[in-house]
Amino acid sequence: MTEPRYLNDIKGKFPGTEAVLPEKIKDGIPAFDCPPSLILDIVKYLKAEGFNYLMNLCATDYKDTFEVIYHLSALESKAKITLKVKINREKPELASITPLHPGANWQEREAFDLLGVVFTGHPNLTRILLSCDWEGYPLRKDYSRKPDQYD
């Protein structure tokens, strides 16, 4: 099976994008480390290439940095691709892809709710799971829970 064109093009078109080493990939889906400033352009390019379905969007805390992970899939060709973006932990900001994939709306709100990643350009970036008056972001590794009347 020949390698699809976009796997080579993506590195040439977007400088700073690195393919994740094959031995680090466990699910067989090609993955790329992307610079935060280019993520909206990369997703736009991939959407033009047929990746029209956002399977999942989640964020992870690696103590020194946050990583936002996008799983995209093409409904026509059944191809899948993973994008990983490392962002600054002190100022976790990233462009929202909700204008391109409306399904990212609640996923980005969840990442904001639990980890505090701010998606700029999101239409309604408010807490989705926790109550509105919650303090802190509970899935951060350094989150310390204050006992309240329910503990």
């Binding site: 926790l130 509970p138 989150y143 829970r145 009347q149 329910y150 503990d151």
Partner: peptide, 11 residues
């Protein structure tokens, strides 16, 4: 858990 009440009898 950070979000679960530790028993209904707290409420």
């Amino acid at each position: 858990s950070y979000s679960v009440v530790k028993g209904v009898d707290k409420v």
